[in-house]
Amino acid sequence: MRIIVCVKAIPRGEGQLRIAESGDRVLCEGAGGWTINESDEYAVEQGVTQKAPLGATLTALTVGPLVSQEALYIALAKGADKAVRIDSDISDPQRLAGVMARAVEKLGYDLILTGVESSDYLGAQVGTLLATRMGIASAYAVTAVEFSPDRKSIRVTKELRGGASQYLEMGLPALLSIQYGMHPLSYVSPRRLLSARSQPQETLTLPELGLDVGGRPGPFQVLEVGVPQRVRRVKFLEGNSGEVTSQLLGRIRDAIR
């Protein structure tokens, strides 16, 4: 059984972001500033949990520039057997899914795990796009997985709106987007992370995957990136602690009167 878990490296926090002078891009500043996307960490956790009882191998896959290794290190430290990075800075979801499709075909797989969204782009598209492109079954916001005795199919619990659940059956290969909180996250000690850093990683380029580097941009154009415009023009309550408290009391009284 071969499991691939797709991970992405993102900036560690909002404080490191800077809007480029061109105004249409966000830059991340500061060394050591990248980490694994939170949602993908749950997917890795699921892969690691599943691996032993199935006797499976777990490969962590990322598409991104060199800094993306940070996500792979964490996956390795958590128990992935192998790490592969596709060197590319593509961010368009459709093209990304195209690149990942080639990569997973090359690696071979029975099950692909992804997170539900990346905290940077917040698009929640790539997992489902990849499955659609591969023509394999998929489920989004998965909260439980059970393998059939012959390991040819799985039963999946997925989330619906309002906290309802749905039970699905699908044959393998399949792709599951693992919901936040499916497993508690395990702690990665600095020591394990350090040893993961010395494990070999495979790097592939787009030409090595038989893909050309260019590509058609989507029919849209970024006008600007900025801090949020506030719909309601929030009124901030300011002053010393006593002033803030009395304003807060006043607003609350008005609200619940």
């Binding site: 909002e14 972001l17 940077d120 849209f220 154009q221 970024v222 990136v225 801090v227 949020p228 415009q229």
Partner: peptide, 18 residues
């Protein structure tokens, strides 16, 4: 033009659509 959040919602991007 559409607006969407990025980076935990701390930034917004405005995108012009053809």
């Amino acid at each position: 033009v559409v607006t969407r959040p990025m980076f935990w919602g701390t930034r917004h991007v405005r995108i012009q659509v053809e």
